[in-house]
Design a protein around this nucleic acid. Structure first.
Lengths: 240, 240
DNA sequence: CTCCAATGGTCTGTTTCCAGACTTTTGGAG
DNA sequence: CTCCAAAAGTCTGGAAACAGACCATTGGAG
């Protein structure tokens, strides 16, 4: 097995080729609903800069997503790459397929990682002094999830979870939480959005927000843990 | 400022060119002491595979580290790239220089990130059922730090902290903690290793291990928080 | 003493990726 | 109606990275 720490440190410098990585990223932005249906991606030049790749490579990725039916690209002023993707309703067997696509180890890895970073983020946020604006943002995100139409639920749920990390002000932490979420998106998308589960989640979301606003890191951490344990249990239940 | 979540998601696909990234990685492995002085890196072909880069690129990186005096490369059987680097004793002004090199925002970002992921890792580990072997590893790492000669202190301290993340079994989490540690290594290396601080740290390390072994996520999380708060305070004190 | 296996060192052709200039399309402003 | 600005679309030369074959060196095994 070798020195374990070497494995962590000498992991791949680049995940794959730039094109595939870019496709993956954009797809995630679409599937997570960070760019909602009807919205458009940033302009090519700007986006290429943000992603740190050349415009050529970005265009290849966009074209491939266009051909796959995720984007509608229009030229001319006020043109752009518009998202035309509605998350499909999950069908029986989707989840199992999604899990098989990633393998059992990756699943445990992703769930553990998510547990750690989201709990950490909540703890940090609860331990910091929040401005009124931050408090308002948090409350708004919570309300958004609670008011969500079923089709928007996953998107707004994601936004809520990511908001916690973002409000800490740490870009690294926000990126880590986004990454963690990404690794379970396909799984979550494969679970039907059911009433009782939503009610349950809503109560847990509320508890998280309350703990953070109260400045109680202990309670915040615990609330997130329970919430994520619940999600993990839900996943495992659908697999059983 | 744009949709904040876009910023997190559309971050650069690749951090820079492969060569520079590789140099950085290897340098970190050396500075963190993951590859101790006198040891050698894995063989080029193997290492290139692990890092996901071509041998040519890897060799360029190795040559640049050789020219910078970090490595001694010998050919022939039983040859390899040997680490010839002894961490320099910190001098006055080093810390300030290190902080200025990264900027105040990056510093806060790194400290926040580290707090979140290490607390998360400790919590997760404490909440899981540990094998005897895992318990032994944890105890051994703790003992190693306590017995460390001053020159080895940072290296073994790093090993201790990373062991917690590794023992969770999540490669993602281990990588995140390694990353977090990396971002503060230069700062920690710039702080002199002083007796009272070490004693203080030793007590906190012991508390962390005790909480994990006791299966108390609450206490584990809290112990790590206190420890990292202490380190952060130490950093700030040297800056004041 | 000879051979061999493991290692670093070198070379070549190919693919990927990039930077930047240029072209075309589009819808609104004047 | 004309022009303009902002966007996508196209092209070219060059740099970076790769894959893989091959060479050179070294220290031990037999």
């Amino acid at each position: 097995m070798g020195e374990p720490q070497l494995v962590a440190l000498l992991r791949p410098v680049r995940a794959g080729n730039a094109f595939e990585e870019t496709v993956e990223r954009l797809l995630q932005a679409i599937k997570l609903g960070v760019v909602a249906p009807g919205d458009k991606l940033p302009a090519e030049r700007e986006l290429a800069t943000q992603l740190g790749i050349s415009r050529v490579t970005l265009r290849e990725a966009i074209r491939s997503l266009q051909e796959a039916g995720y984007l509608d690209v229009r030229r001319g002023r006020y043109g752009g790459a518009f998202v035309v993707y509605e998350p499909p309703l999950p069908a029986h067997g989707d989840l199992r397929r999604a899990v098989n696509a990633m393998g059992p180890y990756e699943l445990e890895d992703a769930l553990t990682f998510r547990m750690a970073v989201e709990c950490g983020a909540a703890q940090v946020l609860a331990a910091s002094v929040l401005t009124d604006e931050q408090r308002a943002t948090l409350r708004r995100r919570l309300a958004d999830v609670n008011d969500a139409a079923p089709a928007d639920y996953r998107r707004l749920d994601t936004a809520f979870h990511l908001a916690i990390a973002e409000l800490t002000g740490s870009a690294l932490l926000a990126a880590a939480c986004a990454d963690a979420r990404l690794r379970v998106t396909d799984l979550l998308n494969a679970i039907p959005v059911l009433g009782p589960n939503i009610d349950h989640a809503a109560a847990q979301h509320a508890a998280i927000v309350a703990a953070i606003l109260a400045g109680d890191p202990e309670a915040a951490r615990k609330a997130v843990k329970e919430h994520l344990d619940g999600t993990a249990a839900l996943l495992r239940a659908f697999l059983a």
